[in-house]
Design a protein around this nucleic acid. Sequence first.
DNA 1: TCTCAATTTGCATACCTATGCAATGCGTTC
DNA 2: GAACGCATTGCATAGGTATGCAAATTGAGA
Lengths: 343, 343
Amino acid sequence: MPSEKVTSVDVAKRAGVSQSAVSRVFTPGASVSPKMAEKVLKAAEELGYRPNVLARSLITGRSRIIGLVVAYLDNQFYPDALERLSNALQTHGYHILVFMVSNDESGTEKVMGELLDYQVDGIITASVAMSNALAARCAAAGVPVVLFNRGQDDERLNQVTSNNYIGGRRIADFLIAGGHTRIAHIAGWSGSSTGRDRRHGFEDRLREKGLDLVACIDGMYRREIAAQAARDMFAGDVKPDAIFVGNDHMAFAVLDTLKHELKLDVPGEVSVVGYDDVPMAAWPSYDLTTLRQPSGRMVEATVKTLLDWIEEGSRDVRKIEIDGPLMIRGSARVPEGWSYEGL
Amino acid sequence: MPSEKVTSVDVAKRAGVSQSAVSRVFTPGASVSPKMAEKVLKAAEELGYRPNVLARSLITGRSRIIGLVVAYLDNQFYPDALERLSNALQTHGYHILVFMVSNDESGTEKVMGELLDYQVDGIITASVAMSNALAARCAAAGVPVVLFNRGQDDERLNQVTSNNYIGGRRIADFLIAGGHTRIAHIAGWSGSSTGRDRRHGFEDRLREKGLDLVACIDGMYRREIAAQAARDMFAGDVKPDAIFVGNDHMAFAVLDTLKHELKLDVPGEVSVVGYDDVPMAAWPSYDLTTLRQPSGRMVEATVKTLLDWIEEGSRDVRKIEIDGPLMIRGSARVPEGWSYEGL
DNA sequence: TCTCAATTTGCATACCTATGCAATGCGTTC
DNA sequence: GAACGCATTGCATAGGTATGCAAATTGAGA
């Protein structure tokens, strides 16, 4: 049994060729004769040789590592995206290096440094914003960045989101059509573009239709806060007859609170609409009406953008917005004549 | 603005010292005078220098990368574990490189190769088994492996699990004490140690008490299969009055099917018990009685084992089993006198 | 059979950092 | 003031691979 690291030199020695020959055999597109390839592969096989990715990256300047920065994994949207991203990148020979970060400035700063230390070929941030200083550093290092599910003005940052503003409007239309009159909003974190855009779209459309929110609370994308918001809303004098919750993750907590704690009938007494359409939203216990963020297509766009930058040398910054349908299920009153196809 | 990669040589030049000096300043524990450190750090700061982890790893033989192999992220247990693992390792200066794998032999084989190409310092496999050939290769490469939540006989592989056999027995005791007489099991994948151990513990204890399973179906750890199993069980002549489901992920599907599709009262007509105690199990809509796998402590044990091997040179293979309590909630009839403290 | 172009191979070097070894500098003690 | 020990520094090399360039080989064409 071969014990320690075996290098290209070992293989070269055994095959009776030069180290460069070995290297070429393992470099796609290099010039090698069939019989050379055969000799080398045989020797490599016997010794159990595989090229050292790290050493290779030192020369090529390519690590085949993509850094993923993510704040939480308890919102099902993110593990789902992570799984898709990882699979997609894997088929292209890249892998994901994970960096967990608390969603504040200093944490991001520190983690981004470590990220660049690994010479990553690209960076994906999921639900995390970046300071302009950081964007500058990445740009200086020539490392492309894609903000996944978060928008930002910086003209160096690619981004892939759903069309949150339109989504918010669409949900407003749906609730109005359903005849709701006391509409409330438990918003996504106001520090995030997604939270703000959804809210603005929602509010704007309501206002256009002559309606005002009866209540609006920032749920911070956190379960407990959203649950408390729901309680507070029903402790006041005007009880909402519909709540748009800023994402599914919070919507589940709101549903739990309304149904099991406040003993309200959903959608009889109050309609609930979420945002994301995570897999769990379709589970019968929640059966949540929600606006789908098409994570499959968002991942595709993210990977394509990244690879275009890395492998094709593209330098045009993309701001991609992907539309998703409203998934009409049982947690909100369905207006006359609406259905999936109705969109 | 500094454009391209800045190296230790650049810093050395600017500070008027040797490259080795720069290296030493950035190597903890190396010998440097205060004024040298100051000079170098100043120059580094000005140029925006940070050591190249990859180049460093070429010398030290340490990449500070831990490979994580995982099959699915839709079972909340795994993203939860991933988050904890990543955080724990991050505080020790390590990071996780993710490898998704379909849960079959060939996929694992391929992915493990890529894993070793990255010169990872250690490998964690979550819910994935390894062929002995692979275990041998990792051992030969000197890379420690920890099986997380999966057991295997190979004497080269560390493993961290809960005590699945005891857990199965404990659930049997609980259901028997609850007066159930027609007990069924929707098992975890029989190809996995966890699935088998839980089942054996469960069956053994039932048999000791003179009971036989009225039905037992392999749920393969998949929602749809578990749901179908539940339907099948209630299509027969003897309807179960209790079902132990091999993990929470499947248990949610079973609960959905029983409550919303078959319109059964839980726990009135049938008790359901899960395994894992993922966060979602405590959500009011499911309120699932389940045996907790203490993922926090499992992660601790995993990280400690890994670091002992990597940094302390430990070579003793550990087979760690961590006990967890039964979390008594509302999805199963509670026997007279039982409660959390009753354990 | 000889020439020439095209293909394949080897040589040497570079990528960026850490570290053993020798040399230098410093402070201390007698 | 000299000798000694210790802390600090620089020099040179290694770690595993890719690649430009020149040398060698191959094959075709006449």
